[in-house]
Simulated assay, not measured.
Amino acid sequence: MLSTGALRAHLLAARLAGPVATSREESLRSYRLFAARDPRVLLGLDPERGWRERDLLGLMADRCGVSGDPGHVSGPDVIDPERTLAALDAFAGRLRRAGEARAPVLFGTGHPHRLLGFYAALAEALSAAGCVVLTPAQGRRVDMVGRFGVRTYRLDYVRGVALVREEGARPAAGATGAHSHSPLPVRIALGALAEAGGPLPELVVGDHGWVCGAGQLGFEAIGLADTDDPALFVGEAEGSVAVAVPLDDGVRPDYYRPLVGYVLHRAGLPR
């Protein structure tokens, strides 16, 4: 397990924090779209207040450490590693509570190519601690609207973590799943649990629509978010998301491994 100082150094070296690959242009575009309530960036969240672009910029400067200067419009965006570390501690605290209560937990990701291993390690630790890791609606059809019309996916689970695969994709072919922002998968998963009479998750862990979609429905939800994902931080500010951890969500999968040991140690969970 890395010390706090060593993890801070890793965050910067791996560009999980500090100057990140997400560009300032991408982040500002997301803030504009969110202010216009574009569903592509709301991620299933229905904000309580009207968020203007300048409000979002101020929020993201506070929660992530991006520049709050509206005149800064290009170049790499920046995440403050101290904010990442503080949020990881809060994230671990929620996992600790779930483990102590042996609570049912649901994991899901829209970034399976990058983050599947991170979530799977947490799911395995919680399972070893006595939690039920839920896997509802396996194989259920999910129709999502994209730039080229409606595409059909299937809900699947890998090592206890939900993801979606394009219809006909074979796990044996090496596909880990599709990138997705949609809240539809978590709605379908939660709906299946409700239809079956539970148990319902006491904690939902993930990113994108998995966190915002669950939080909007009143479930405790925690997750990871990049500088161009304002929805999770708005949800955190408004109380529908319990913890949003600012970091780059698109680096190499092995770069997230040191975070696993740190989080599990802080949460008092087995590795």
Rank of each mutant, 00 (worst) to 15 (best):
G65R: 08
T109F: 02
P76M: 05
A86Y: 01
R114C: 12
E100K: 11
R114E: 09
L88W: 11
G68F: 04
G68C: 05
E53T: 13
P47S: 06
A87K: 00
A101W: 14
G108E: 07
A90C: 00
C64F: 04
G110C: 05
R94G: 00
L85F: 06
D89L: 05
G65E: 08
L88T: 02
L115C: 14
M60T: 11
R97V: 11
F107D: 06
E48G: 13
R96Q: 04
R97E: 14
G71E: 08
E53G: 11
R114T: 08
C64D: 10
R94S: 04
L56P: 14
R97W: 12
L115A: 12
H111E: 09
C64M: 07
F107L: 14
D89V: 11
E100H: 12
F107G: 06
L59R: 02
R94W: 01
E48M: 09
G50A: 15
L116E: 06
L95T: 05
E100Y: 09
R83K: 15
A92M: 06
R94Q: 06
H111N: 12
P81R: 12
L43V: 00
R52G: 13
L116A: 12
R83E: 08
R49G: 13
H111G: 08
M60I: 08
L115Q: 08
G44Y: 10
G58F: 03
T84M: 07
R94T: 01
S67P: 12
R96E: 03
A90L: 06
A101F: 01
L95V: 08
F91G: 07
P76H: 09
G44W: 06
R83L: 14
H111K: 12
D62V: 04
L56M: 07
A103H: 01
G110I: 01
D55V: 10
P104E: 00
G75Y: 02
H113E: 14
E48P: 02
E100V: 15
E53R: 14
F91Y: 15
D89Y: 04
G99A: 07
G58M: 07
A103Y: 01
R96T: 03
I79W: 02
G68Y: 01
L43C: 02
G58H: 09
E82W: 02
L88E: 00
A90R: 14
R52V: 03
G99I: 09
E53V: 15
G50Q: 15
P104C: 08
P47D: 04
P104Y: 03
H113T: 10
H72L: 15
D80T: 07
E53P: 11
R94A: 10
A101P: 05
D69F: 03
T109M: 06
V73Q: 13
L106R: 00
E48F: 10
G71M: 10
L45D: 12
L56A: 08
R83Q: 03
V105M: 08
G99D: 05
H72A: 14
H72G: 04
V78C: 04
V105R: 04
F91Q: 01
A86R: 14
A86N: 00
F91C: 07
P47F: 12
E53S: 09
L45R: 10
H72P: 01
M60N: 03
H113D: 11
T84Q: 03
A87C: 01
L85Y: 11
G71Y: 02
L56S: 13
A90T: 00
